[in-house]
Every structure is written in structure tokens, then in C-alpha cells.
């Protein structure tokens, strides 16, 4: 009896170790696959183009920063300019989106007023409509009012973000009304309640939302590709795929492109590893609770 039990628990332990090793193996392989393209990108950006043709995936044998040098000098500093365009456009858009969304979310969450349900339903229904539908009418309207090729066309039309507003409302519903009531009795006005009680309490939600909105604006490609044709206003994402060198349009300067990709990916990666939890929270904002 005794031996049988130890034998079975022994077998159980072996089984446990084997299955745990198997699970780790699975996760390690998956992680390696996840990292591989990023590794290829960064290490490739440090190789001369000739090495890419023989060693595209290993560590650089002949380390060089020449690609970055050429990238920064490309078309008289166009890359840095478009990078700053992207930073500017994404930051301003995100700030405006969050401001407007949190104000509207506050009204929907903490007030009763005529037309509230109608307005809210109308906003919700439109979440299903893809932005691609808007491309054509927006293109016509903006070309008529002379907005094509500008910063405003990349910022202002994106301000009303229904998803952000909905998330703000959902969070603000969890702020107890008693707290606001107490402030109101103490003589705080509507605006003060919003700026001094609602906003500070909403910081975690706004942070996660902000990351999500910033990333989606930063990554945007289709919209600026249609609306912007002048180099001065282009975000970097529209520039990267068009990199060419020496008037040669057939050959692709892979080395230059990899350096450009690294330039846009690494800052995001850095922010991601600093603010991991915020990023991961942002994923589930709309999906699990909803």
C-alpha cells in the first residue's frame, strides 16, 4: 500500500514536471517567434546592404551605423521632420479626443437630461460604421474647403471618438454620486466637479485609453495616404514605404527601410516596457467588461 502510494505520487510529480516543461517549451517557442521579426529588423538595420543578402537573420558580422546616417540625411532631413509630424499629430489628437470624450462621458454618466438616451444610442450605433466609409465623402469635403495637405485634416476630424466617450462613461458610472453630491453641497460648480473630482479619479482609465488612441493614430496609414500628398505634412508611416535611393525606383533599399522601421518601433517598444500594465489594460478596456 505505502509503496504504491509513493510510486503514484512519484509518477504524479514526474508527470507534473514533464507537463510544466512542455508548457514552458511551448511558451518559449511562441515568444521567440514573437521576437524574431523585431530582432531581424534591429540587427538588419545595423548591417550593410551587402550583408543582408547573405546573412539576413543573424547578428551583424559587420556592424555599421551608416544606414541611420543615410536615413537622417535622406531628402534633406525629411525623415526627422515626418517623425516629428507623427509625434505632433498623435499627441494633439489624443489630448483633444480624451478631453472631449471625458466631458461628454461625464454628462452622460452624472446628469439626467432631455434627449440623453437618444443621443447615447445614436453614438453607440455609429461605432459599427467603419472609418473607410468616410474616406470618400471626407476627401471631397476637405478638398472643397482646402483642408487636404494640412495638419488640421489629420487632427480635427478624429476628435469625436465614440469608443473613448463610451469607455469614459462606463468608468465614471463607478464613481459614487454621493461624493459629487457632497462637493455640490459645498458649493462646487459643474466645471469644478469635472476638473477637480472626475478627472483626477479617471486618470487610470484615461491613461489606458490615451495609449490606445495614441497608438492607433501613430500607426495610421490609410487616412493620411489619401488626404496628404505634400511631403511637409506627411506622417512618417506614409514616408517609410516610399523610401528609394539614387533615383532608382526598382531596387528597394532594404537596409534603409529596416533602419526607418527601427526608428518608429523602438520608441513605442520603450514606452511599452515602461508602462506594460497600462498597455495590457488598454486591450481589455472594451472587450471583457462590455
Amino acid at each position: 500500500m505505502v509503496t504504491a502510494r509513493t510510486a503514484s505520487s512519484e509518477a504524479g510529480r514526474v508527470h507534473k514536471i514533464v507537463s510544466r516543461t512542455g508548457m514552458h517549451l511551448f511558451l518559449i517557442v511562441a515568444s521567440l517567434v514573437a521576437i524574431a521579426p523585431v530582432f531581424i529588423m534591429v540587427s538588419g538595420s545595423l548591417k550593410p546592404i551587402t550583408e543582408l543578402f547573405v546573412n539576413s537573420w543573424g547578428l551583424p558580422r559587420e556592424f555599421t551605423l551608416n544606414n541611420y546616417e543615410r536615413l537622417l540625411n535622406y531628402n534633406s532631413g525629411m525623415i526627422l521632420h515626418s517623425f516629428l509630424n507623427s509625434v505632433f499629430i498623435s499627441t494633439v489628437t489624443t489630448v483633444l479626443q480624451l478631453t472631449v470624450a471625458s466631458m461628454a462621458g461625464f454628462a452622460f454618466s452624472k446628469y439626467q437630461f432631455r434627449g440623453k438616451n437618444f443621443l447615447f444610442m445614436m453614438f453607440l450605433l455609429t461605432m459599427m460604421v467603419p472609418g473607410e466609409l468616410l474616406l470618400t465623402p471626407q476627401f471631397i469635403i476637405f478638398s472643397n474647403i482646402g483642408w487636404l495637405n494640412s495638419y488640421e485634416v489629420q487632427i480635427i476630424p478624429a476628435i469625436a471618438n465614440t469608443f473613448a466617450m463610451f469607455m469614459c462613461r462606463q468608468f465614471m458610472d463607478s464613481i459614487p454620486n454621493e461624493m459629487l453630491e457632497a462637493a455640490r453641497v459645498d458649493g462646487a460648480g459643474h466645471w469644478r466637479i469635472y476638473t477637480q473630482m472626475i478627472l483626477p479619479t479617471s486618470v487610470p482609465t484615461l491613461g489606458a485609453l490615451g495609449i490606445l488612441q495614441f497608438l492607433s493614430k501613430w500607426n495610421d496609414y490609410l487616412y493620411p495616404r489619401i488626404m496628404i500628398t505634400k511631403v511637409n505634412y506627411k506622417p512618417i508611416m506614409v514616408i517609410l514605404p516610399t523610401l528609394t535611393e539614387g533615383g532608382d525606383t526598382s531596387g528597394t533599399p532594404y537596409d534603409l527601410i529596416l533602419a526607418g522601421c527601427t526608428l518608429v518601433v523602438i520608441p513605442m517598444m520603450f514606452v511599452f516596457f515602461c508602462l506594460q500594465n497600462k498597455f495590457l489594460d488598454s486591450v481589455t478596456l472594451g472587450s471583457v467588461k462590455g
Binding site: S31, M41, W57, L240, P241, V264, F272, F279
Partner: peptide, 29 residues
């Protein structure tokens, strides 16, 4: 968690261009 989520942080444009290199005929890994 962060390792597996990382690809999502890479910009779509950049990732597409990197995959273009990875699957290239001569330069491809």
C-alpha cells in the same frame, strides 16, 4: 505576457515592411 503582446506594439507599416524583407527572395531570412 509582454513578450507575446509585443508584436502588437510594432507599427503595422513597419511590421509589413519587415515581413517584406523576411520573405524576400534574396534578402529574405
Amino acid at each position: 505576457k509582454p513578450l507575446l503582446f509585443m508584436p502588437q506594439v510594432c507599427a503595422v507599416v513597419a511590421s509589413s515592411l519587415v515581413f517584406k524583407v523576411i520573405f524576400g527572395t534574396n534578402v529574405g531570412a
